Computed example of a mutant assay.
Amino acid sequence: MMAMPISCSAFRRTALILALVAGGVPAFAQESTNQSANQSATQIASNQPTGEVVLIPNRVIYPGERIELAALKQVTLIPGKHKPDAMATRIEELQGKIAKRTLLPGRYIPSSAIREAWLVEQGAAVQVFFIAGGLTISATAVTLQPGAAGDFIKVRNSDSGKILSGTVMADGTIQVSAS
């Protein structure tokens, strides 16, 4: 019996399927299926001392969506594999942050793909303070940009229409300085 030649596209398709099946999780991880989802990373690490424990998405996380624990899963990296630099894989780095772009399941989360949650939204009315020594001047302004605590943003004074730049404070106010 003579073997039939395999077409190039069928060969590629078969190779692709084999690569996808064999290379399952790009994060080179083994799921901790026998571990409960609420177990801490240190508990899992003590049970499996050979691999590093990291967090990756278990579903698609869309841009602008807050990252919650329910959207993440703990995996143990295959022994000898280490997470790449500039990847967020710990709870402190991810909990409550906002996705800047689509995060896919089973993939590492680049630090550049997440941001702090906005403390003030664009177009929101805020209190603006200028403090110099014992002098404090306050005014109402409208934000021209969203910002998290510590961000330097622009606001428009509601009374004068002047555009000011200031720092978002932890309480949602804006502190401006003399320029």
Rank of each mutant, 00 (worst) to 15 (best):
A99D: 04
K73W: 02
D171T: 06
S112I: 04
D159N: 09
S111Y: 02
A37G: 03
T143Q: 07
A132G: 06
M4A: 11
A178W: 07
P105K: 03
A10Q: 11
A22L: 13
L144N: 06
G134H: 15
T167C: 08
I6R: 12
D159S: 15
A125C: 08
M1I: 07
V120Q: 02
V54N: 00
P26H: 02
M4W: 12
E116R: 10
M87N: 01
S179D: 09
A3I: 08
L69W: 09
G80S: 04
E68Y: 08
Q127D: 08
E93M: 01
E68M: 05
E68I: 09
V128D: 04
C8Y: 14
Q39W: 06
L18G: 13
R156V: 14
F28N: 09
P79Q: 09
P49Q: 01
E121T: 07
A124S: 10
R156S: 12
I109V: 15
I56L: 04
V21G: 02
F11I: 07
G96S: 04
A113K: 01
D85N: 06
N34Y: 10
A88W: 01
T89M: 03
G123W: 02
L69I: 05
M4K: 14
P57V: 02
A3C: 09
G166C: 04
G134S: 15
A141M: 10
E116K: 10
L16K: 13
T167D: 11
L94P: 00
S158D: 10
I91M: 11
A86C: 06
M169K: 14
K100C: 09
A86S: 13
A99G: 02
A148H: 13
K162S: 11
I61D: 02
